[in-house]
């Protein structure tokens, strides 16, 4: 059997397993999708109400769309980030971590399988949210370059995956608090990436830090594509930083993960009990 057949089968193992888990935990998933939709609606309603809040004339449609892009992208990136960063937490909780780590599967295949499912599931959940919010606000997307936006979103996912892999290290190092630590990383990305506001309103030093977040570029590109209808070619300048970040963060994440995995095997942190 060729190396590639083996790795493809193992990759599919993670995709299929995660699909089965989502299917079996459908109640939880329903709760999370509902939460995501309600959250998106609540934030988008801020845009709808801004004229009344400020008492001044505001381009409400533009503001709604601006916030909607932020909330949808954040919802998507959170699903991708959480799926990857929680892969250790989940396996530790179920007690299966030793069996997965004992299998003849490279860690990059493990990550690819987890990531493929995360991206597909993230897109599925985001489309549902988009459908519901569009129904509420009757948003006009005629001018939007949706294909270009989707392309940038996928490119953006690549760099987010690297961040997710680095975050996945934390539950391996800290079996009880690691999961909460990944949420801190997520919250920092939320703060600096201009999800609901332009990064120009941030203090200068935070604006500099925001250049390191892939979400900053994804959001800029998405807003250009959806709010201003820019062509895919015009969006390419946003793609390069994302690709460069992916090229750096994914191998870096795998390297860090490898080092921490060895540390966990030296100190006995893989096992849950027994």
């Amino acid at each position: 059997m060729s190396f590639w057949t083996r790795e493809l089968r193992a990759t599919y193992a993670f995709v299929e397993r995660n699909f089965n888990l989502v299917k079996r935990y459908w109640g939880w998933e329903l709760v999370w999708i509902t939460y995501s939709i309600v959250n998106s609606l609540a934030i988008t309603f801020i845009g709808a109400g801004m004229e009344k809040i400020s008492g001044q004339s505001v381009d409400t449609q533009f503001l709604i769309l601006y916030l909607l892009v932020g909330t949808l992208i954040w919802s998507y990136l959170s699903v991708v980030f959480d799926s990857i960063s929680e892969m250790i937490t989940w396996e530790r909780w179920e007690g299966t971590i030793e069996y997965t780590f004992m299998a003849p599967v490279s860690r990059s295949t493990h990550m690819i399988g987890t990531t493929l499912f995360a991206v597909a599931y993230g897109i599925f959940r985001t489309l549902i949210t988009l459908g519901v919010v569009t129904f509420f606000f009757q948003i006009n997307l005629e001018k939007a370059n949706l294909a270009g936006a989707m392309l940038l979103l996928l490119i953006g996912s690549v760099s987010f995956i690297g961040f997710g892999i680095v975050a996945a290290v934390l539950p391996l190092l800290f079996s009880e608090r690691g999961s909460q630590m990944t949420h801190v990383i997520e919250a920092l990305l939320l703060l600096i990436s201009g999800i609901y506001y332009p990064i120009s309103v941030l203090p200068d030093w935070l604006q500099t830090v925001s250049m390191l977040s892939p979400a900053t570029y994804v959001l800029d590109a998405m807003r250009e594509a959806i709010l201003h209808g820019k062509s895919t070619v015009e969006l390419l300048p946003y793609a390069w930083p994302l690709l460069v970040m992916g090229v750096i963060t994914i191998p870096f994440g795998l390297l860090v993960f490898g080092i921490v995995e060895r540390f966990a095997k030296r100190t006995g942190r893989l096992k849950r009990s027994g």
Binding site: M1, T5, R6, R9, A10, Y12, A13, E16, R17, N20, L21, R24, Y25, E94, G95, T96, E98, Y99, T100, M102, A103, P104, V105, R272, S273, G274
Partner: peptide, 28 residues
């Protein structure tokens, strides 16, 4: 190699078939 430990660690919400299918695919 493979190993059986005293604690039967599984994805408890998944069925025997789903758990074993996952394990089998990991072993190609």
């Amino acid at each position: 190699i493979n190993r059986v430990s005293v604690d039967a660690a599984f994805f408890k919400k998944l069925s025997a078939m789903e758990n074993l299918l996952y394990a089998a695919r990991l072993y190609s």
